[in-house]
Amino acid sequence: MKALLTKAVGGPETLVLEDLPTPTPAAGEVVVDIAACAINYPDTLMIRDLYQFRPERPYSPGGEFSGTVSAVGEGVSRWKVGDRVLASTGSGALREQIAVAADRLFEVPAGIDLVQASALLMTYGTTIHALKDRGDIEAGNTVLVLGAAGGVGLSAVELAKAYGARVVAAVSSEDKAAVARKAGADDVVIYPREDMDKDASKALAQSFKDAVGPQGADIVYDIVGGQYSEPALRAIAWEGRFLVIGFPAGIARMPLNLTLLKSCDIRGVFWGAFVAREPQRNGANIEELFALWQDGRINPLISQTYPLDRAHEAIAALENRQAIGKLVVTM
């Protein structure tokens, strides 16, 4: 089988495509013929050794995939050859086949396309955990979503709307604004991509305040970080929840006096650790996501697909913040 490997620390250009032996399942494992592997921001960090987890090299990037079970190991009773599944593994999925622990798999319901299914877990799984478990979302809340046109950001727009919230999407271009509106955003703020001085930061904070309304944002969903976090915090509501999802624009330095003035919380969202610590709660969240999908209330957007030998291009595009929706590598 073919596999894309990282053998040395570096960017997407350092990845190499090689032939490896076909895996066989150990006890408690299944082998999945991978149909598609979605690209996520941690993939850009892990190959540079900038992520909190550093698998031993050589390994394949790619943390979530969908496919069909092709072999079943000893002791596995839930799965059989031919079952359509998806999983989040953190890494290892940019290859044609993978051996994975059987208890990490979820069944893909009938009628849901396997390629599109590959884009569900890390984005919508992160967001349902963020909004429900960390954000205490309620119908009627106002949610400000930073980076609202990427895969995670769009999942936040869709899920917040599904839970009855008013959504303000913050994006960096008119094209991305159109995507966010199509996903259901009630209002859009376009922020600058260039470095902001103090006056520009204040102007952005005022734009956020104008968009969310006089009561402020009950939830700020921050997938961007950097210079955008503080202006968003200034637009938060009394006792609002500021959710830290990621920081491709850099780790923000937040003035903690604002948390006192607004009596608000800054809450971290680490979905991967939640999955490991509370698999049953995560499983219930994933089942809810499939129900919402089948009801037509969410619909993962895949803007572009790549063959395995061009997977490095997908990682580079995400690293450079060029992606709209999800980028997926198909086998």
Rank of each mutant, 00 (worst) to 15 (best):
N299T: 00
R277C: 03
A149V: 04
A252P: 00
L94G: 05
G216V: 06
W271G: 02
R193V: 07
I298K: 09
P231N: 04
L45K: 08
T44G: 06
R297H: 14
N40D: 14
A71G: 10
K2T: 00
G213Q: 07
A273M: 10
D195C: 00
Q227L: 04
A170V: 13
D103Y: 07
G75S: 10
L45T: 03
V269N: 12
H312I: 00
L131T: 08
L292M: 12
I315K: 08
T14K: 13
G226V: 07
D295G: 09
A149H: 04
I34P: 02
A323Q: 11
R234C: 04
I137M: 06
E74R: 08
A205Q: 03
L94C: 04
P61H: 09
S155T: 12
A102E: 06
T305M: 04
R267W: 05
I112M: 12
L204F: 09
G63K: 06
Y59F: 15
E74K: 10
G164V: 05
P55Q: 08
I219K: 02
A71P: 04
A317K: 12
V189H: 10
D19V: 01
L131H: 08
G296N: 06
A119Y: 02
A99R: 03
A170C: 11
G150N: 09
Q227H: 04
I324F: 10
N282H: 15
N40G: 09
E239T: 13
L289T: 10
G164E: 08
A3E: 15
A180V: 11
S77R: 12
A102K: 00
R241T: 07
D197Q: 13
T259A: 14
V115I: 15
V115K: 10
P231Y: 05
R234T: 02
R310G: 00
A156S: 05
Q116T: 15
Y306W: 06
G92L: 06
T142Q: 01
A180P: 07
D49F: 08
M122C: 04
G62Q: 14
R321F: 12
V100Q: 07
I315T: 05
I128G: 03
L121I: 13
I266V: 15
W271P: 02
K262F: 12
W271H: 07
N282G: 01
I39W: 02
K209A: 08
P231M: 05
K182E: 15
V72Q: 10
A252N: 05
I128T: 11
A35M: 13
D43S: 06
A27C: 03
L159S: 03
Y306G: 00
V171R: 01
D222Y: 11
A273L: 14
